[in-house]
């Protein structure tokens, strides 16, 4: 209580606790819309997989299992460093916040780099849906559909990752200017929620796209 009196929140909030709850509520509302944003693609995937499970198994087997698995580990690790950034900002340790954010950014960038490397491999094999799609074997039209969903889902996810990398760069700038502290930790907490959410989307993309054999 004394803490909130020492650091009153701006109107309309009566104290920091209420301010923090409002921040979380707003962010979760946004994340609920994001769940539906990806939800349409997940529903689309479910319908087409229901009708051609064999083709999806063939398409999935042509993706790089190791890239999907390593990238899942990379994202989970980046979530850990992001959670630590949110923890150490409450101790007013600018240097610790800086290192946690840099680690998160580098892991996120590694994820995107591996993703784009896989896009390159897929392109080289002419598995990009469209006029130049070429696939030897059965179910070629349905495999093309699988590859379309692969690009739509991972592409939307990668766009979210790039936005997250921008948000972390913004946090690094705030931290560098001394604008983050135990009293002003909301930017870190909100970006962390977003980052973990994007991680969760991938937790489902991994089994659906890479392990559908």
């Amino acid at each position: 209580m004394s803490n909130s009196l020492l650091h009153p929140s701006p109107p309309p909030y009566s104290d920091r606790e209420q301010h923090s709850v409002a921040n979380h509520l707003g962010m979760w509302t946004f994340l609920a819309t994001e769940i539906l944003f990806f939800g349409g693609l997940f529903a689309c995937y479910s319908v087409y997989r229901w009708f051609s499970p064999e083709a999806f198994a063939v398409g999935s087997a042509h993706l790089e299992f190791w890239i999907g698995t390593v990238n899942t580990g990379v994202l989970l690790t980046s979530s850990l460093s992001m959670a630590f950034a949110d923890l150490v900002v409450k101790t007013n340790s600018r240097r610790a916040v800086q290192w946690c954010l840099i680690a998160t950014w580098l892991l996120g960038a590694l994820f995107v780099a591996l993703k784009f490397y896989e896009y390159y491999l897929v392109t080289r094999e002419h598995h990009v849906p469209g006029a130049h799609f070429h696939f030897e074997g059965a179910y070629a039209p349905q495999v093309e559909l699988f590859m379309f969903l692969y690009f739509a889902m991972t592409g939307l996810h990668a766009a979210h990752m790039l936005f997250g990398l921008g948000a972390i760069a913004w946090l690094l700038r705030l931290n560098y200017r001394g604008r983050l502290s135990a009293e002003h930790d909301a930017p870190v907490a909100m970006v962390a929620l977003y980052w973990h959410y994007v991680d969760c989307v991938w937790l489902f993309l991994y089994p659906l796209l890479y392990l559908a054999r």
């Binding site: 609920a32 939800g39 997940f42």
Partner: peptide, 13 residues
């Protein structure tokens, strides 16, 4: 609020 997103997602499905 966190559960609401999944509730609407279940309606889509």
């Amino acid at each position: 609020f966190a559960a609401a997103g999944f509730f609407w997602l279940s309606i889509i499905g």
